[in-house]
Design a binder for these strands. Structure first.
Lengths: 193, 193
DNA sequence: CGTACTTTGGAACGAATGTTCTGTAATTGC
DNA sequence: GCAATTACAGAACATTCGTTCCAAAGTACG
C-alpha cells in the first residue's frame, strides 16, 4: 500500500559511516549527512531516529562490515602465527596507503565519546573484548602448532596484541609515516618470540 | 596606565586545558570555557584570539606542564631500563586511578583533529617525535648499562615504546580496567628482553 | 583631578545546529 | 479510479554556536 522507499538502507549507512569515520561524531552535522547520503532530512529522522541513534546504527554497521573484514584473516588463517602477522602487516599497509587517514571508527569513537557516553563506551568495550578473544584464539592455535613458545600468558599477550592493534589505528589516523608504522608493527610481532 | 587584568593567564589556561582534555575540541563550547574559567567572553577573545587559537595555546601549555611531567622520570632516572618501566607503570596506574578517564590531550587531539587540521597534526607529530627520542635516549642508557641486550634496533624499539605509550593513554580514555591495562603494560616491558 | 588606555560585563549578531511540521508524490488494496 | 498509507521535498522551528560590539569600570601618569 505505501509508497516504496527510494533509497537503499545499506548504502545510506555506508555513506553515513564514511562521514562519521572521517570527521568524528561531533564534527559531523546533519547537513553533512543529508548532503552525502542524498537522503532527505525527514526520511533520515523517520528511518533512523536522531543523530545519536543513526550513529549507533553506523557503529553496528561498521562492526559487521569493516571490523569483520579486518579480522577475517586473523580468524580464518589456520597458521595462528601467520594470521597474527598478516593482520598487523595489512593494517600497517592500509593505514598509510589510503589517501585519507581515518584509522578505525571504533577506536575513534571510543576516544571521542566513551568517556561521556555509556552506550558508546559499552560498544567499544565489547569490540575490544572481541578482538582480544580473537587474538587469544590465534595465539592458542600458534602455540598448539609450535609456532609460539608454550608457557606464555596467553590472556596478557592477547591484550597486548589487541591494544597494539588499536595503537596502529591511532598512529595511522594521526598520520604517521610508513617507516614509523612498520617499525612499530615489526617490534610488536617480535614480542611473540 | 591601563586597567590591570583581573585574571591569571596560567590558571585560565589550566582550566581551559581541563575542559578540552575532558570533552575534546568540538564538544567544548565557548560557553563552557566562559563558565569554567570565570573569564569574560570579551577578555577571552582579546587575550587569546578565537577558539582555535586558544586551543593551540592550551596544547602548548599541556606540553610544558603535563607531558613534561609524564616524561620527567623517563628523562631523569639514570637507570635507563628502570626509567622506562616506571614511566609505563605510572601511566597504567594514573590511567585507571583518576576518576575521569581523560587519556592524553595530545593523543586525543591528534585523533580528533590531525586528519583535517595541519596545525594540530604538526604539533602532535612533533610531540610523538619528542617522546620517541626520549625513549631512544633511555634505551641507549640501558644498553650502555647492560640492562638491555646490545644489537637491538634502538630506533624501532623507541617507536614501539612511544606508540605503545600512546596505546596506554588510548585504553585508559576508553575506560579499560586495571587488569587489562596492567597486562598490556607488562607485556610491553617484557618485549625489552 | 582628569585624561589616556585597557579590561570587564553583558547584550547583540548572523550563521549553523538538531529537530519537527506541512504539504505533495507515489504506490497498493479495494 | 478512489482511498489509505507511507515516503519525499523543503520550509520552518527554537536553540546554540562562535564572534563582535558597546558602554561602564578601573588604574597610572600628567
Amino acid at each position: 500500500m505505501p509508497r516504496p522507499r527510494a533509497f537503499d538502507e545499506e548504502s545510506v549507512l555506508d555513506n553515513a559511516m564514511n562521514i562519521f569515520w572521517s570527521k568524528g561524531f561531533e564534527a559531523t552535522s546533519i547537513q553533512d549527512l543529508v548532503n552525502e547520503t542524498g537522503l532527505n532530512r525527514a526520511s533520515m529522522y523517520a528511518s533512523f531516529g536522531d543523530k545519536k541513534a543513526l550513529f549507533l546504527r553506523v557503529l553496528d554497521h561498521y562492526s559487521q562490515k569493516i571490523s569483520a573484514e579486518r579480522f577475517a584473516d586473523l580468524r580464518n588463517i589456520e597458521d595462528g602465527r601467520a594470521a597474527i602477522e598478516k593482520t598487523f602487516r595489512d593494517a600497517a599497509k592500509t593505514g598509510t596507503a589510503e589517501g585519507r587517514h581515518k584509522g578505525c571508527l571504533m577506536v575513534n569513537s571510543g576516544m571521542e565519546l566513551a568517556p561521556h557516553d555509556p552506550e558508546t563506551a559499552a560498544i567499544a568495550h565489547q569490540a575490544f573484548r572481541r578482538a582480544e578473544d580473537t587474538f587469544a584464539a590465534a595465539l592458542n592455535r600458534a602455540i598448539g602448532q609450535g609456532k609460539i613458545a608454550k608457557g606464555k600468558n596467553v590472556r596478557a599477550l592477547a591484550r597486548f596484541l589487541a591494544g597494539s592493534f588499536q595503537g596502529v589505528q591511532l598512529m595511522s589516523r594521526r598520520g604517521a609515516d610508513q617507516e614509523t608504522l612498520t617499525d612499530y608493527c615489526e617490534t610488536i610481532l617480535a614480542a611473540l618470540d
